[in-house]
Simulated scan of single mutants.
Amino acid sequence: MSSAARLSVVIVTRERPYAPEYHAYSSLLVGRAVAAATRAGWQVDVVAAQDEGRHETLRRTDDSGALVILGGEDIAPEFYGAARGYRGEGAHAERADEAQIALVHRAVRRGTPLLGVCRGHQIIDVALGGTLLQDLGEGSTHRHDDVPIERVMSDHAVHVDARSRLFEGLGAVAQTRSAHHQAVDRLGDGLVVAARASDGLIEGIEHVTAPVLGVQWHPEDPGAPRGQLAALLGTLAVPVALAA
């Protein structure tokens, strides 16, 4: 298998017996991401970071031409210097946190193209020393609370920086589907804002030199605009640096 054509899709886990409805929906999103990447010509390998652990996750992805880190559980607060006990806190997956953070470090060091989606977007920030807003509070427009999992997604626009890599594929305003109760707060080293929601929340980030970027929303959701996921997968190439 050619490493140039191999894409590793890195998820949290293959099993969530404690949350079967959430896991079923998460698996649907993973399947859609894999199908889109396959249509784009990638040879796709799915790696479950919590199940594999840091060493095996790094080994499994060592010769990948590009990486996608998808959504999942909240990142454990210890990784960004915060405390537990916040509103909306659920199960954590510390082995996945550690493994995915290590993937970001290596991608930046090597210049491996990496796209982070939702949790993956936040992992990029935390890996590079950034912090998170731990909960957006009741009434947030970024997700629907207390509804069946298939209705959790919220539709809203994001405004894309014209200098960013996202701009070419998405344009100045992108319609998005999101389901997050946390958000990037302080940016990690080497990161700049590529997109914001109307309320000012950071929705897209990019590294200024490495081909690493993240989006807070879910382009792989069935209700996402047609072609949006393909456009984002198309960013997995060497970037033009975005000025801070």
Rank of each mutant, 00 (worst) to 15 (best):
A83V: 12
R196I: 02
H23S: 09
G171T: 02
R87Q: 13
L213M: 14
R106G: 01
D199L: 08
Y80K: 05
I205H: 03
D185K: 01
A35L: 09
A40Y: 04
V34G: 09
A4T: 14
Q182G: 09
E78K: 14
G204L: 07
V173D: 10
F167R: 04
L115S: 06
L242C: 15
H181S: 09
A157Y: 03
G120I: 04
F79T: 04
D155S: 14
E78T: 01
L170Y: 00
A224P: 07
P77C: 08
V215M: 01
V160F: 00
R165S: 11
R151L: 14
A24L: 13
D45L: 14
A237P: 04
V68T: 04
G65A: 06
G81P: 03
I101H: 07
T61R: 11
A162S: 14
T112A: 09
S26M: 14
A76W: 03
A91R: 13
L213C: 15
R14I: 00
A194T: 05
V104T: 03
H23Y: 05
V240R: 14
V10A: 08
T131K: 12
I69Y: 00
G223T: 14
P77G: 11
E206F: 08
I101V: 05
G90V: 06
H207D: 09
L29C: 11
A40M: 11
G81K: 10
V34D: 09
T13F: 03
V9E: 07
S140H: 08
L7G: 03
H92G: 15
R226N: 12
V147W: 11
R110H: 09
A102C: 07
T13Y: 02
V30W: 00
M153V: 05
A107E: 10
V117K: 10
R32S: 05
D135G: 07
L7M: 07
R16T: 01
V173W: 00
H181V: 04
L242M: 12
A107L: 06
A93C: 13
A162R: 15
G188L: 02
R151N: 06
A37H: 04
A19D: 09
A66P: 08
R196P: 01
G90L: 03
A237W: 01
T112R: 07
R60N: 02
D145A: 15
G81N: 12
I11R: 12
D62T: 10
A83W: 03
A107G: 08
V10C: 00
A36P: 03
R87Y: 08
R39S: 14
